[in-house]
Amino acid sequence: MHKNFKGIEKTVFGRGSFSQLGEIIAPHRSENNGYMVFIVDNYFKGKELEGRLPVQPEDTVYFIDVDPHEPTTEQIDILRDEILASKGLPSGIIGIGGGAIMDIAKCVSLMVTNEGSSTLYQGLNLIKKPGIYHVGVPTISGTGAEVSMTAVLTGPEKKLGLKCEWTVFNQVVLDPELIATVPRDWWFYVGMDTYIHCIESENGQFNNAYSHAYAEQSMKLCRDIYLGENSGQTAENDDKLMVASLMGGLSLTYSEVGICHAISYGLSKILGMRHCYSNCIAFNHLADYYPEGVAEFKQMVAQHNITLPQGLSKDWTDEQITAMAHVSYKLDHMWNHAVGYDWQEKVTIADIEAIFRRL
């Protein structure tokens, strides 16, 4: 069965395009109960961006702190219930922030129309009803969450996304000016998330000409940004990174991610490690699976004087390592892509535990 995914309905790109947000959402204000919900990274509370939000008196704004924890099913359920109890079904959800805020906005847009806990919908095509209009405004680029059909949540049993065609944003606003304030280390980690998306997309059985075209261009941009003659955190490179993130997200959508993401999910679920950072921690030790990609990644780490910790596993218990391995092992789709449909004949829990012990 070939993948047949819905894309973003509308995209605006360019410096200063955030100023168009008000007019973009205006035609949708009359839908449902006639108010918008803005979900904004708490980093911007009290800052200049807060004053630029196109908020009307009837709207609701939630400033959400996503540091250090990634979105959880409990968080989504509580937020959904609070929104519906306050003013009923909104006209739309606008997410403004990094990948975690993008995923929260996508999840809330689905859960306001679907009953029960979000734990019931962790997986592919489990959502029963379409969500409501939702807009993504990334203020950090690299995760691909602005284009992905997956909204990743950590639940009591697993870390897994709500994944269906209704997850995809109706509109994204890509304004490179918004990512200028990203701290240098996180500018690196999230950019590497894009790079790793492409390396994993390319190195597996689901790679195809369509996913390859996006990965090829995204990796070219990443190399310009992180290894090129004018590498670094500049305005021009912010433009490139925003496009690379989008293309990297499309590449993985039409192919798949692999072993690094499987290991990263274990780190996030059991240790609460942030996704982009955990990807870097894991990828640094996966040269036997992705030799060329890891070698180039290490060049980028060296060029930008990024320090990745070594020997982390010495502080982990055997129980933690086993638990992380089981989280990773359950991600069949990632191992299928990277190793093959017979991956369970080639990879054991003990093998995955050994990967964690390298870190």
Rank of each mutant, 00 (worst) to 15 (best):
D239I: 06
L153Q: 15
P130Q: 14
A235I: 07
G98K: 07
K159M: 04
A282C: 12
Q233N: 15
I179C: 09
L174V: 12
A244K: 02
K47F: 10
C164T: 15
K45H: 12
E157Y: 10
V135L: 06
N207A: 14
G293W: 00
R29E: 12
T119C: 09
D67W: 09
G88T: 08
Y121V: 10
L331H: 08
Q122S: 05
A287I: 01
K3Q: 12
N32S: 10
T72S: 14
N33I: 06
K106D: 04
H285C: 05
G161C: 02
N125D: 15
G191I: 02
S264A: 15
E58I: 08
A209S: 10
S211F: 00
F13E: 05
H275N: 05
N125E: 14
V301Q: 03
D351T: 04
Q303R: 09
L331R: 10
G97Q: 05
H28V: 04
T181D: 14
G311T: 11
G92N: 07
T253R: 08
D65T: 03
E165I: 03
G123S: 09
F44H: 11
M102V: 03
Y254I: 01
N42P: 01
K314H: 13
H2Y: 08
D224M: 00
L308Q: 06
I93A: 12
Y121E: 10
D175I: 01
V182I: 05
F63I: 03
Y43I: 01
A302S: 03
N208R: 02
L178C: 08
Q205N: 09
Y189A: 09
E202P: 00
I39K: 04
Q205P: 06
A105C: 03
G204K: 01
L312R: 15
I259K: 01
H275L: 09
H337Y: 08
N4R: 14
D288V: 03
F5Q: 07
S30Y: 12
W316C: 03
N230H: 02
I132E: 12
L124T: 11
S109T: 06
P183E: 08
D238C: 04
I306L: 01
E229F: 01
H326E: 14
I179W: 01
F297E: 07
N170K: 11
D41R: 01
E9I: 04
V327T: 12
G266K: 07
D318L: 10
Q320W: 02
M324P: 05
M102A: 13
E177A: 13
A287C: 02
E319Y: 01
D238E: 12
S118Y: 04
E256N: 13
Y210F: 10
A145Y: 03
T348N: 11
A180K: 04
G131T: 08
H337M: 07
G95S: 06
S118Q: 07
T307Y: 06
E216D: 05
A100K: 13
V135C: 09
Y289Q: 12
L124W: 13
E292S: 03
Y214A: 08
I104P: 00
I93N: 11
E229W: 00
I25C: 11
Q20E: 14
K128V: 04
N203M: 04
M334F: 09
T60R: 15
